[in-house]
């Protein structure tokens, strides 16, 4: 959100990204670029590599080939300080992964105090502001197991936001939630989009993707097979495989 955009104005640019797990090649040349304030949704069948792509962007998985460039800096070159890069990228997982031995407040301040070296009081002020904004201030002293799944997931997103990342990666953040808890989390993400957060969102919620994304990318067999504005992808997909995928989602009643 803050760092100066480079000449091409891209927050994130991925070029020819390849990633294998042993013999299994999961990503076979991904190209993707995001401008500031852009929201991109990744859709695709289970196992198509959405999570893997997001984890690669956050440098949680080593990549085999290709480049990831953030604000003009190649973060996949040798010798790059991965911790510094990760501080600029927020990632939230399907399973929240809050730290169960810490209060909500400490979960949110840990990154700022330890990775950003903010003072405890600065970090807490920042955390409280976020918790307040998303209606969780009264939970600040609770431990995660006292929270509903939806609240936990919102705290997990806030934990990432407290780092004031340039870009936020969300990996199916609602799929582990009971249906009635989903909307609270989606509302939070909508609010972030309105506030101009640059985001890559892997999701199975097609309705949500349609209404929040500037662009939708359909991931299939390790490549982005088709991408475009949500209306085009959802109403008139060009690729037969995209049509097939959307049809199967439709039949499963998830759209």
């Amino acid at each position: 959100m803050s760092a100066a955009p480079t000449s091409d104005g891209r927050v994130l640019r991925i070029e020819g990204l390849h990633k294998s797990f042993g013999k299994l090649e999961v990503l076979k040349g991904i190209d993707l670029a995001l401008s500031e304030h852009e929201v991109v949704c990744l859709i695709g069948a289970s196992g198509s590599g959405k999570s893997t792509l997001l984890r690669c962007i956050d440098l949680l998985e080593p990549i085999d080939r290709g480049r990831i460039v953030i604000h003009g800096e190649d973060v996949t070159r040798r010798g790059v300080d991965v911790n510094r890069v990760r501080r600029r990228i927020g990632i939230v997982f399907q399973a929240f992964n809050l730290f169960p031995h810490m209060t909500v407040l400490r979960n949110v301040t840990l990154g700022p105090t330890e990775a950003l070296k903010l003072s405890r009081s600065e970090a807490e002020a920042r955390a409280l502001e976020l918790l307040e904004r998303f209606g969780l201030a009264d939970k600040k002293d609770d431990y995660p197991d006292r929270l509903s799944g939806g609240q936990q997931q919102r705290v997990a997103i806030i934990r990432s936001l407290a780092m004031q990342p340039d870009i936020l990666l969300l990996d199916e953040v609602t799929s582990a939630l009971d249906p009635e808890l989903v909307s609270g989390v989606l509302d939070l993400i909508r609010e972030l989009a309105r506030a101009g957060m640059t985001m890559v969102i892997a999701t199975h919620e097609m309705g949500f993707a349609r209404d929040i994304a500037n662009r939708v990318c359909f991931l299939d067999q390790g490549v982005i097979l088709e991408e475009g504005p949500p209306d085009q992808i959802f109403s008139s997909p060009r690729e037969p495989r995209t049509q097939e995928f959307l049809q199967s989602i439709l039949e499963a009643g998830r759209m």
Partner: peptide, 28 residues
């Protein structure tokens, strides 16, 4: 491992992840 992934994704170093996230839970 997802606990470590969460800590590392916040930009914590390996040692910080151990100290703040892994060891306190492990000892308990």
């Amino acid at each position: 491992p997802s606990q470590v992934a969460s800590a590392r994704s916040l930009g914590l170093t390996r040692m910080q992840s151990l100290r703040f996230v892994v060891i306190p839970q492990a000892v308990r």
